[in-house]
Design a protein around this nucleic acid. Structure first.
Length: 537
DNA sequence: TTAGGGTTAG
């Protein structure tokens, strides 16, 4: 690439050195997946006979103005290119690019940055990067556009490498917007160490953060699993908007801290901040996990009162909340009233029905989903396999399991193998379940063996239970559940002596039974309670 | 006059 690096050889105190390779000769990433314009549009696939999208209005206006004899100037192209980017109109964008070159406006930084953005958002990172490289004159907007383009395409290492190149080589000074772009890439990558270094870089180089950048920091920490640092940022930021609250509430949800999520939501209400869909989704997720039905209902009433449609992400969260709070008919009602149902809506409902033992209804819904042309995903199959388990439809379940990879190109994960083991085991096919585990291409985990141990308990299979327990102990560390289950298998088969032996072993190994814990919601407040006295094994 | 950014799913 053309170099416009700072010529100073003295060390820059704010130099980032984020990467162990930061001192090597910097080359921008070039190993990019080539995408055809059609693929980049995200539309055309084999056998797709949809008609071409209509020409964007901005393009028609441009053509009309040319026909009226208007001569374009540098100010003509940025808004036009922005509009084409927003409608993913790569072909029209390429036409405009040709006009730009022909009229000699390609050197204009505003025009070129807009062209880089057009190619980047349409997924053609090769053209975006080529254009970026073509002229030495670039600014922080050019760099940020490229970083963001890579990040949005999921090319996160490349996004970070471009950022490192920019700051370590001194090509441009990072500002709050560039920081947001690179933090988003760190968050998607889940790279906490890198995110922390970017934060330190921000502090040392005294970049003035705005509310967007603070929100990006909260989100980065939350997505990388450091909820305490996220909360520190939330408390420290000088000004907050609704996204700040949403980022923190969803961060608590992600961390499994549902009470803190609800408590923050109440604080948000106390401060008079109007919640939006993202807030309510976070609140509903917490309600679903805590069984806080009253609060979940309050959200539903609120959604209706403000005239919002319970569609999209919010509708799905409502379905999920009602299903997990035991109100499957309410879940079904919300689902039925949704105008547009996507794979998430169907999956929430299928999983919910399966959880409630309505296997056949779940399977009917799965068939309906296929009929209307929605492709299932990984989680849909968790629901489908679980529905087959509850309906006792073992052979059908095995066919669905086969179809996952052969028809839908979804590689089964441990959770799916677990479902099949559970399905075979509950139906009494313990040998088949054992054989299935043996043939698994992935190492069985504690849940897989635990499912089989559970089946041994149901069917009184003492010998297999003992053997499974050995496997279980090789993959989990002194977990109480397995010991208790084996002890119960013995007890249910009148082998009290063996049952006591297992309990004694638990005491000897200091395995404590986790005290039972439950929660109840009174007046919208979730109270958690458990057994106070430490339970004796 | 014109360009880059943050939150929400089973």
């Amino acid at each position: 690439m053309a170099s416009s690096s700072s010529s100073s050889s003295s060390p820059n105190p704010t130099q980032l050195h984020l990467s162990p390779h930061a001192t090597r000769t910097q080359k921008l990433p070039r190993t990019l997946p080539l995408r055809t314009p059609a693929a980049a549009r995200g539309g055309a696939v084999a056998g797709d006979d949809r008609s071409a999208p209509p020409r964007p209005r901005s393009m028609s206006s441009y053509v009309e103005s040319l026909q009226n004899g208007t001569i374009p100037d540098t100010f003509t192209f940025p808004p036009l290119l922005k509009s084409l980017s927003d409608s993913n109109a790569l072909l029209e964008g390429e036409t405009i690019h040709a006009h730009v070159v022909k009229m000699g406006f390609e050197r204009d930084l505003y025009v070129r940055n807009n062209l880089i953005r057009l190619y980047a958002v349409c997924g053609d990172l090769v053209s975006a990067h080529n254009l970026f490289d073509q002229f030495p004159q670039r600014d922080v907007v050019s760099w940020t556009t490229l970083i963001s383009g890579y990040s949005k395409m999921g090319l996160l290492e490349q996004a970070i490498e471009v950022f490192l190149c920019m700051v370590d080589e001194g090509f441009a000074a990072a500002d709050a917007v560039a920081i947001v772009a690179v933090l988003a890439a760190c968050a998607k990558l889940g790279d906490l160490d890198l995110g922390r270094r970017v934060h330190r870089y921000v502090d040392s180089s005294r970049i003035k953060l705005d509310v967007f950048a603070w929100n990006a920091l909260i989100s980065m920490y939350a997505k990388c699993g450091d909820i305490d640092s996220a909360y520190k940022c939330f408390k420290k930021m000088p000004r907050r908007n609704v996204v700040s609250w949403n980022a923190m509430i969803s961060g608590f949800v992600r961390a499994g801290e549902f009470e803190r999520a609800l408590s923050l939501f109440k604080r948000m209400q106390g401060e008079g901040i109007e919640p939006d869909d993202a807030t309510l989704v976070g609140v509903l997720n917490s309600c679903a996990s805590l069984g806080a039905l009253e609060m979940g209902r309050w959200v539903h009433v609120y959604v209706v009162r403000i005239g919002s449609k319970a569609d999209g992400v919010l509708g799905n969260a409502l379905v999920d909340m009602y299903a997990k709070c035991g109100m499957i008919d309410h879940a079904m009602q919300v689902f039925d009233e949704m105008r547009k149902r996507d794979v998430y809506a169907y999956t929430s409902m299928i999983v919910g029905l399966a959880m409630h033992g309505r296997g056949e209804k779940a399977l009917n819904l799965f068939n309906e989903m296929l009929r209307v042309g929605i492709s299932p995903n990984r989680v849909t199959f968790v629901g489908v396999l679980s529905a087959c388990t509850h309906a006792g439809l073992v052979e059908l379940g095995l066919r669905h399991f086969e179809d996952m990879s052969s028809v839908y190109n979804i590689t089964p994960q441990l959770e799916h193998y677990g479902c099949v083991v559970d399905m075979l085991g509950r139906a009494g096919y313990l040998d088949r379940a054992r054989e299935f585990i043996r043939a698994m291409p992935v190492e069985p985990d504690a849940f897989i063996w635990g499912s089989l141990l559970g089946a041994c308990k149901i069917h009184g299979e003492v010998a297999m239970g003992e053997s499974v327990m050995k496997h279980l102990l090789t993959v989990e560390n002194e977990e109480d559940g397995s010991y208790v289950l084996l002890s119960n298998i013995y007890a249910a088969n009148n082998r009290c002596h063996d049952s006591n032996r297992v309990r004694k072993a638990m005491r000897r190994k200091k395995v404590k039974k986790t005290p039972g814990c439950s929660s109840i919601e009174i007046d919208g407040v979730v109270h958690e309670f458990g057994v106070k006295k430490k339970m004796e094994a």
